[in-house]
Design a protein around this nucleic acid. Structure first.
Length: 613
DNA sequence: GCCAAGCCTG
DNA sequence: CAGGCTTGGC
């Protein structure tokens, strides 16, 4: 098996029982990711706030949420968050790298596999307020949509509608003309939007609001008399104004992050989540990252964010610098210069029906205004290079609806030195679309099952699916050769740039891996572990959880036992080196790297996937 | 000088 | 995760 080369403690190693006697029945705990995104659509939240106001007015004592939905929500989110901390802290008293207590593990494992809050809107369907929301939504959508003129000034003028969503949105394009000026938010906040420097634009906005209020069933005075509601109204005005001015890009981008949510989710026993429909790519983990990390939305690349804009023939009303990236070639440049972005997905279930905790709500609205609402420039001005193909194929357009691709950073980074290679138009490769969707625990050997063909595309660049695949491959190989990469990423044109990116990915994976190893090795020493024999890695260990969270965030992949063995060896190597004070040598890790590099396994053929059909 | 790998940074 | 830089081997 795997010996323990260069170990300083061969005796320890010899005496150390096989560490891979892991419980096969282990039910992988859900990574402590969590929670819901604190972000979301401003308009959605504002609308909901408005509806809530209505609710308050009409049913002051009634619970807003469907009790059942509320319960589900709580069960889906809160426990895990709490549990994560408790389990982590529970370990602090341990002097070894022992697994967490069964209790904590159990409670953790009982948590759902993320995407918990996604259920909310589903559970609310049928509510009578749904109709009202729908109407309001239509209004908003109408506001946001530009004039119908299809004379798009864009290199992709022949953009082909490919979805119902799209055509549906098209129907709502018959709206009035849009303003050009984009009011500064400071002005809006200062003047209350339609007041002060108000123009006819303000009147229009007010009309829109009045319409909404009527639909919501209460007199407008009721809304604005309350200072709180007035504030919300002001904010709403601001948002509407932005939409009216064909500057909904940022809003669009904000909501697009969440609008691509799965159309339907079901909670399975044990908290696992699965979907009826295929396009489920936006996991709660991904969303969680946006809340735990600094405003990830603001960091989303413009190309990916504005990608869906090319789905509709648009009218160019101004010379915006927004660029669109061809989704099928995320890392490749794009030449689209569409200038009008529309919230095509306003009608989709989204945060409109998502209900973050109430108390946070108010702050979220304002915070989003401050932090999310004004990233227009950030979104729109980052460079994006032209595509090599110029025109999007229907498949490409179709891919625009892939939320992962659209939202992912992976899609944005152009290759360092873009080599203009012309895609072989006949290269009907298949996307590993389902890489982004499996929320069901899958077996090691069933990787194939998550490789499904959804469309024929010409993959010129790496997508988030490739990234996810690469991460899973890391469980087998830490140092993949270029041959392996070539073999397992045959669905994309492995240019030098792409290959470099793949290599870089694995380099980053290793970096994280070794950082964790060092951290936990040092922690073990601090906590009093005095023998390498006590250094072990199991699926229960915090180290594994961290790694699993990083490489298998959705926790939908059964990590091979061999990886745990390698991880344990790595941890032990670090432990040994640190114990011997080798870390005083600047290159002390290299010896470890050399050891670990010999522990690679073959990547299952399933990962090659049937990329062509 | 080139290149791969690693390190640092954002 | 990716860009930039350094390092070390050739």
């Amino acid at each position: 098996m795997h010996h323990f080369p260069s170990s300083t403690y061969p005796e320890d190693r010899a005496e150390h029982p096989p560490s891979f006697l892991h419980d096969n029945t282990y039910n992988s705990p859900t990574p402590p990711s969590s929670s819901r995104s604190s972000g979301g659509s401003l308009i959605s939240m504002l609308l909901r706030k408005t509806v809530e106001s209505e609710q308050t007015l009409q049913e002051s004592s009634a619970a807003y949420y469907n009790p059942e939905a509320h319960i589900s929500f709580s069960a889906l989110t809160s426990p895990r968050l709490v549990d994560h901390h408790s389990s982590t802290s529970s370990k602090s008293s341990s002097t070894t790298m022992e697994p967490l207590s069964p209790a904590s593990q159990a409670s953790t494992g009982a948590s759902p596999n993320g995407a918990g809050w996604n259920q909310d809107w589903t559970l609310e369907l049928g509510d009578r307020r749904q109709a009202k929301r729908a109407r309001v939504e239509n209004i908003i959508r109408g506001i946001a949509v530009s004039p119908p003129s299809p004379s798009v000034h864009c290199t992709h003028g022949e953009t082909t509608p490919t979805s119902d969503l799209q055509s549906e949105t098209m129907e709502n394009k018959q709206e009035g003309k849009r303003k050009q000026r984009v009011p500064q938010h400071q002005d809006l906040l200062r003047t209350g939007g339609a007041s002060g420097k108000s123009t006819d634009e303000g009147h229009n906005l007010k009309k829109q609001l009045q319409t909404m209020q009527r639909l919501l069933g209460y007199p407008e005075t009721e809304v604005f008399m309350d200072p709180y509601n007035k504030l919300l109204a002001d904010i709403l005005k601001y948002e509407l104004s932005r939409a009216v001015n064909s500057s909904v890009d940022s809003i669009f981008k904000n909501i697009s992050h969440t609008l691509f949510k799965p159309p339907q989710l079901h909670i399975k026993d044990g908290g696992m989540v699965e979907t009826d429909d295929e396009p489920v790519f936006l996991s709660s983990h991904e969303l969680a990252s946006s809340s735990t990390h600094v405003d990830s939305m603001s960091r989303l690349p413009p190309c990916s964010k504005s990608g869906m804009a090319q789905q509709l023939p648009e009218i160019q009303t101004e010379a915006l610098s927004l660029v669109v990236q061809k989704p099928a070639s995320m890392t490749r440049p794009c030449s689209l210069n569409l200038t009008v972005k529309r919230p095509l997905h306003f009608h989709q279930p989204s945060l409109l029906y998502n209900h973050p905790t109430d108390l946070q709500e108010d702050h979220q609205v304002l915070d989003n205004l401050k932090h999310n609402g004004f990233h227009h420039d950030t979104f729109g001005k980052l460079p994006c290079r032209p595509t090599t193909t110029g025109l999007p194929t229907p498949e490409m357009v179709d891919l625009l609806w892939d939320p992962v691709k659209v939202k992912s950073k992976v899609t944005s980074r152009p290759p360092r030195s873009p080599q203009v290679h012309h895609p072989t138009a006949t290269g009907h490769n298949v996307l590993l679309d389902s890489l982004g969707l499996p929320h069901v625990k899958m077996e090691y050997g069933s990787f194939q099952s998550m490789v499904k063909r959804t469309s024929y595309v010409l993959n010129e660049g790496l997508t988030t699916h490739h990234l996810k695949k690469a991460k899973l491959m890391f469980f087998y190989t830490r140092y993949p050769s270029s041959n392996v990469l070539t073999a397992f990423f045959s669905d994309i044109q492995l240019t030098r740039c792409i290959m470099s990116q793949l290599i870089k990915w694995f380099s980053n994976f290793r970096e994280f891996y070794y950082i964790q190893m060092e951290k936990f090795a040092r922690r073990a020493r601090v906590e009093g572990v005095n023998s390498v024999r006590d250094v072990a890695v199991s699926r229960d260990s915090e180290l594994f959880r961290a790694l699993n969270m990083h490489y298998n965030k959705a926790n939908d992949f059964q990590v091979p036992d061999r990886f745990l063995e390698v991880a344990e060896i790595t941890l032990q190597e670090f432990y040994i080196s640190i114990s011997l004070a080798r870390d005083s040598d600047p290159s002390w890790k290299k010896a470890i790297y050399k050891v670990i590099s010999k522990l690679d396994s073959d990547v299952p053929a399933e990962f090659k996937a049937p990329l062509t059909t």
